[in-house]
Amino acid sequence: MTDISTSHRRLSPGTKAGLAFFARYATILGLIAMIVAFSLLSPRAFPTLLNFTNVLNQASLAIIIASGLTMAVIVGELDLSVGFAASLHGILVTGLIVATGLPIPVAILVVLAVGALVGLVNGLVVTKLKVNSVIATLGIGTILTGLAFAYSAGVPIVSGVPEAFLEISLGRWLWGIPNNIVVMAVVVVALWVLVERTSIGQEIQAVGGNPAAARLAGISVDRIKILGFVISGMCAALTGILLASRLGSGTASAADGYLLTAFAAVFLGSATLRDGEFHILGTVIGALVIAVGFNGLNIFGAPTFSQYMLQGGILIVAVGLSSLGRSIAER
């Protein structure tokens, strides 16, 4: 509302169209450029079906947790607890199987329910106690880390993890597609349909777009926000479970790093195809950009520190692109 007085420099129509195009397609072009460059630089290791399957398999967990996070940001909140929550859930699921002796499917269901519960608590604290979501989820995430250490008494649960549990992550579906990819695809499609094609999805988008107007249109804003947190919590639980299965152990802070990856993917995604709007498909593309980038670094044997630098750099570029897209759309 203030741009009249703060006097933006105006853009010519051509520049504006060019910038809008750049902001929308930069991530996709970047992804293609990376794939082409890596393929040319490492024609034997990179452009193989095996490697692509691997990258996608690796990326699956990040895509799941980032898709969940997307639900929280679409309704206009941040969920900083996802990484810590996933770590706790990894310990919990192994603990329930190994120490408590629950059957694997029951343990998984219990952990998913706990994930939903964590989301519910996040949502209630944000909507009912009116605590800013950054603070609320950071606080709850830290509490979850505490719980993870308490539950495992600081010692990773490594021995006695049954083969069948490891098989979840190692196993393959029809045509040899790894289970992780199948689970990821199911989650992505389900959330995409929910947001883009259902009446609840319309309400979710309305709450994200203008909560005051959504409320006066008769939408229960609090319930929609809580739903966003619950889905985010469940996706974090799923990621925690799959990670524990892949690692064959439950380790405190094993999944903490997913927080940053998920945020980078979500913001990169918001600058993709739409002008600074969060959406599931964008998040998937964002996560793939990061995964391909890491894969390339690995293939060329780049040192670990470069991965951190890449991730931090991507996060900043992503947020920059996202707000560029939004400001162009507003002009």
Partner: peptide
Amino acid sequence: RSEGLILTK
């Protein structure tokens, strides 16, 4: 604008 519409939709 502030109470009636989701302007970006």
